[in-house]
Simulated assay, not measured.
Amino acid sequence: MNKLLKASEEHYGVSAQALSQPEPSKEEQTEFSVILVGAGSHKDDVVKQVREITGLGASEAANIVEGAPRTIIEGQSREDAQKLVKKITDAGGKAEIS
């Protein structure tokens, strides 16, 4: 059996030990975006939250809300992104993290 394993390793250019090692885990995502999916029935409240989150004026924020689904902010930590999604959902809108 050992000869067969050694011959296979030489033929295919891999080692059995390398095959038995777990694959390195992918890098964990550290930056997240908040995506406004929809405004729901409380569009004005959602526009206010988008203004607060982005620092945009009323008309720019309204354009984002009307154009949903749209990314409203990027580069946030998971915790901050979750807080922003909660603000939007509390205002009656629907948002998600990506």
Rank of each mutant, 00 (worst) to 15 (best):
E74C: 12
A16L: 04
Q49H: 00
F32T: 07
G13S: 05
K94Y: 06
T89Q: 03
T30W: 09
K87P: 01
P22H: 03
R78I: 07
K48D: 14
T54F: 11
A18W: 08
Y12Q: 06
P24Y: 09
D44W: 00
K6H: 11
S8H: 02
A81Q: 03
K94C: 01
P22R: 11
L4D: 03
G40T: 05
A39H: 02
V85N: 01
A68F: 07
D90I: 09
I72T: 07
L5P: 08
E9R: 13
F32A: 10
Y12E: 06
E23I: 12
K6C: 07
K87M: 14
S25G: 02
L19F: 11
E27N: 13
E27C: 04
G13C: 03
A95I: 01
N63M: 13
A39C: 04
I64P: 00
E10C: 14
E27Q: 15
Q76F: 06
I35V: 12
G93Q: 04
S59V: 08
V50R: 00
S98M: 03
E27L: 15
E66A: 15
A61T: 14
L4M: 08
A68D: 06
G93P: 05
K6N: 08
R70T: 07
V37S: 12
V14H: 04
L84F: 11
